[in-house]
Design a protein around this nucleic acid. Structure first.
Lengths: 340, 340
DNA sequence: GCAATTTTTGCTCGCGTGAGCAAGCGTGGT
DNA sequence: ACCACGCTTGCTCACGCGAGCAAAAATTGC
């Protein structure tokens, strides 16, 4: 009787099956699926045909187990209210996939969850962890690094002074000086800085740089306000609370925002709640150049990070044998639009 | 001489090491990390302490290999211009992680890439594939299903008539009827429908439903326009091309959009390029209730999908032994705001 | 206190692949 | 025809864990 199993799905077809079908050994089959392996074009062809017929694809779990390289990186994010995260995810996933890296997406629920998120990643034996969230302060990083559970811990789009992490980011200091100079040149004199949450590590230097630079070069001390997350809705609330009811003379003439998420929330509230015009009554600048910043509604003057270059450097870092001293800062570009 | 290896990272600490440290067998160690396993509280405690000291965590690659369950699901997305995707990703990743599922994020670059994306997922032996993109037409689905490479293929937030997939979505037909009725009740008589790309399968029934229902109940045939992606910027371009230069009498009195991504692009262009007021000159409705829809700028009348319920049902589906007849439609809710 | 029963523990075998080595094979020079 | 050399192939061993069974230990009933 033919008790040839008809598998429910092709997961159980293994290199041995293909080897039998193609008349070669199992190792030749696997070699056919590795790009660096030495194999004759004749057996390669035989294997390809047999694999095609049986629907075989190599099992990366087993490959990873045997080779101690998973070709998997974990991407840890928390900050889902920030539209720029969507852009970053798109760019990172596209470029990493193109280079053969798969991505484990971990939604880190907050500071307390960061440890679990890292544990999660470590159980899959990822080759690297990429952080694009905001919740990773020194304590969390130290715990992760102390456990020596990761070969590489990469902080993307954010600077970190921790020597054991790799930070790939735009040069915030240079960027904010450029913005400060632009703002001053255009005649604005009473800027207010709208900042995001103040984390103790891996944070942005934007607020500090802007405030210091402005004070030193242009005399007065800018007012600053802080929002607890990069969330347009929260930013809107804070801006309304801060500015509502002020005399025109007491209003800032420009709102310099740490990023576009804040700038967008601020724009909405300034127009629709405070009834002021942008840029005539209050100008606005952002940071990141999210897609909506270009739209007819916001026309936001902002600063574009070279995300593609950064992602490509990230790939390079992933391939590198070293795990340290790979920090790199990139130069961005001021994008001038109508909002300032 | 002490050539005790100081590992570069803790990946090479195995259950055997913990077993030696705790004075039990390797299998007891692994049992301590499974929740269904039978183990005495005494050895559990011993193992916990030893594992803690050595920094051991089980290797899920090996576990998956041995048990034939990966606890991994692939999430395939292409449509990154649509802000609703960010909301969906947040909700899905949060709830799936809470239930112990890890997520492989695959950025599908387009229709031609769908096959590669699926292959990618299958090599990691994911337990299921979740599609939240738009590019999966019948041909791609058939290929994937024919290869029998997946136990479950779930189409999330989109209906599919393919019997071998599991579709978890909002009841589009009911939703659009509700919207059509609302629009008519509020006195609008010349709707225009702004649709997204027309895929041959797994698509939305929104346009068809609205147009048919309107024609049958309210007499006239709504004008329809289609955009090639759910991208606000593209929608803006199409709407401008379509409406610019029309007499007021020739303009629709309401623009019914297939989703918020389109509605947002349309809103921007209607206000800032055509110089019309919303809702006085043209009203607008969307679908999805993205975060910005609530903001002061858009105040968009839209339709909210019960994403959390849908994600929770998804978890249930993942746990189910069956792979078929699990389709489910959910009821959403019309969110009335100022735009219509 | 003893046998019957249940819980806990250890073990054999297998999951599908890669590293690295040794044998096989073909090629070219003399 | 012979040998040296490089490319290709097959093989041993290992990766870390789970299923499922058998032995050991703990618990129960009387």
């Amino acid at each position: 009787m033919s008790d040839e199993k008809k598998p429910a799905f092709a997961g159980n077809i293994t290199a041995d099956d293909v080897a039998a079908e193609a008349g070669v050994s199992r190792w030749t089959v696997n070699r056919a699926f590795r790009k660096d392996a030495s194999i004759s074009s004749k057996s390669l062809e035989k294997v390809r045909i047999a694999a095609e017929r049986l629907g075989y694809v190599p099992d990366l779990r087993a490959a990873s187990l045997a080779s101690d390289r998973s070709n998997l990186v974990a991407l840890l994010i928390d900050d889902f209210a920030n539209p720029h995260k969507l852009v970053m995810m798109e760019r990172l996933t596209r470029i990493l996939r193109r280079e053969g890296w798969d991505i484990l997406l971990v939604n880190t629920l907050g500071r307390d969850d960061a440890g679990h998120a890292l544990l999660n990643a470590s159980q899959r034996r990822v080759d690297a962890v990429i952080l694009i969230g905001i919740q990773f302060d020194d304590e969390v990083l130290d715990t992760a690094l102390h456990a020596r559970r990761f070969r590489k811990l990469i902080i993307f789009a954010r600077t970190s002074r921790n020597p054991d992490t790799i930070s790939i980011a735009v040069d915030d200091v240079h960027a904010m000086k450029e913005i400060a100079n632009y703002v001053h040149e255009r005649g604005y004199r009473r800027p207010m800085f709208l900042a995001g949450p103040r984390t103790s590590s891996a944070h942005l230097l934007r607020k500090e740089t802007f405030v210091d630079y402005w004070r030193r070069h242009f005399g007065n001390e800018p007012e600053t306000v802080s929002v607890s997350a990069y969330d347009p809705a929260l930013a809107a609330g804070i801006v309304e609370d801060t500015l509502a009811g002020r005399d025109a003379a007491m209003l800032p003439d420009i709102l310099v925002c740490e990023n576009d998420a804040l700038a967008i929330g601020a724009t909405d509230v300034i127009r629709h709640k405070l009834g002021l015009r942008i840029p005539e009554d209050i100008a606005i600048t952002g940071f990141d150049d999210v897609p909506q910043a270009e739209g007819a509604n916001y026309r936001l003057t902002t600063y574009r990070q070279p995300l593609t270059d950064m992602a490509e450097y990230l790939v390079e870092v992933l391939g590198s044998a070293e795990g340290r001293d790979l920090d790199r800062l990139f130069a961005g570009r001021l994008i001038v639009r109508q909002s300032a």
